[in-house]
């Protein structure tokens, strides 16, 4: 098939524009800046708007405004910038505004460094800002998926009127791979609830304030019901060589690419190992994990963070099977050999 060779950070913008996104508001930060570069290049050429905001906070509030107005709108950043955006994301979730946020995670905490990490898992997957909310989180592991999820994110955002994150890391953002472009969307869903400066929408109100505790509790319950439906319907995961697997490696994003090679190498040595890659982090693919936990001897969670993903694995497995952690931090990426050796070590122990 005909393909174009491009960067993950560029692919996600092209995917978004193919999805009908015509507004980008953002602030530069390494290693996410190419997303802003591509949006600055292509938004105006495709009938959209691009604004380099004065701050991450302003950027997410511009997104809030554009989403209120019914536009398909996106922003992107990396860890420190996402921390700043959390206020606005909470407002978007509270007001049920669909929007897409790309987080190309770098090393933390604080200024950290610009090498890849996965340490934003908790602040992205668990809500992150104030209040009882969740965002849908997609975790691409290739440049093709950066493009595809750039599209899918908007469909999910509109379907559930909810913010959607594309959570990735410096490697997936910076790497180049061939991409096959999907067809552009024909028509964006009608948003009768939005405020558009028209007669029909002049009675519409976008807000997240509910003064009365009963009203606010009802609103919260409605949100929780929505999240329950999302958990039921939107779990996505990829299984690799899990059929007869006794050991399950679990990891997302760039880690899954490394694990895949590690699984192949271990299989050649006769180790019955398979891999589960969560594609959605919220909803967490509980169904797949629960199924695999029935036959697995143990799980090994591999992550570039201090044991954040592993919490969700353990909560799902509820102690039925041992769950171990292998992790690197600070921008170091586990090698194939490290994963291989960790599996061998755990096999001897178990």
């Amino acid at each position: 098939m005909a393909k174009q060779f491009l960067k993950g950070n560029v692919a996600v913008v092209k995917g978004a524009i193919l999805a009908g996104c015509r507004a980008y508001y953002g602030y530069p930060i390494t290693p996410a800046s190419e997303i802003a570069h591509a949006a600055a290049m292509y938004m105006p050429l495709t009938g959209g708007t691009f604004v380099q905001a004065e701050s991450e906070i302003a950027a997410i509030n511009m997104v809030y405004g554009a989403a209120s107005a019914g536009e398909r709108v996106m922003t992107a950043s990396s860890g420190p910038g996402i921390s700043l955006k959390q206020e606005g994301v909470s407002y978007c979730a509270g007001a049920e505004l669909p929007c897409v946020i790309v987080d190309v995670v770098r090393g933390g905490p604080g200024l950290g460094n610009i090498a890849p990490e996965q340490s934003d898992y908790n602040q992205v997957v668990k809500g992150g800002g104030h209040g009882n909310y969740k965002c849908i989180v997609l975790a691409p592991n290739s440049v093709q998926e950066m493009c595809d999820f750039g599209m899918l994110a908007f469909d999910l955002a509109d379907k559930y009127r909810n913010p959607v994150y594309v959570l990735t890391d410096g490697f997936i953002g910076q790497m180049m791979e061939p991409v096959e472009f999907p067809e552009p969307v024909e028509k964006i869903p009608e948003k009768s609830w939005a405020v558009k400066g028209t007669k029909e929408t002049s009675d519409n109100l976008i807000t997240s304030i509910e003064l009365d505790p009963d009203d606010l509790e009802r609103h919260n319950q409605k949100l929780q019901q929505k999240y329950a439906i999302i958990e039921e319907q939107e779990q996505r995961a990829e299984e690799y060589r899990t059929d007869d697997a006794e050991i399950i490696l679990i990891g997302y994003g760039i880690i899954s690419r490394i694990m895949q090679t590690a699984v192949d190498n271990l299989r050649e040595e006769g180790v019955k190992v398979g891999m589960l890659r969560p594609i959605t982090l919220f909803p967490f693919p509980k169904k797949s994990v629960t199924k695999l936990a029935k036959s697995a001897k143990f799980f090994l969670t591999v992550e570039m963070s201090n044991g954040q993903l592993i919490d969700d694995v353990r909560l799902t497995i509820e102690g039925n099977v041992p769950v171990y952690l292998y992790n690197r931090m600070g921008g170091n990426v586990p090698s194939i050999k490290e994963i291989h050796d960790e599996v061998m070590k755990l096999m001897r122990l178990s």
């Binding site: 209120s68 519409n204 109100l205």
Partner: peptide, 24 residues
């Protein structure tokens, strides 16, 4: 106000206004 209404976060009205005005 019997107009379209958007309630926003503290201090962020000009940013939200930017997103709204550029959409419409």
């Amino acid at each position: 106000f019997h107009t379209g209404n958007v309630q926003v976060a503290h201090g962020r009205a000009p940013a939200a206004a930017t997103g709204i005005k550029r959409a419409h």
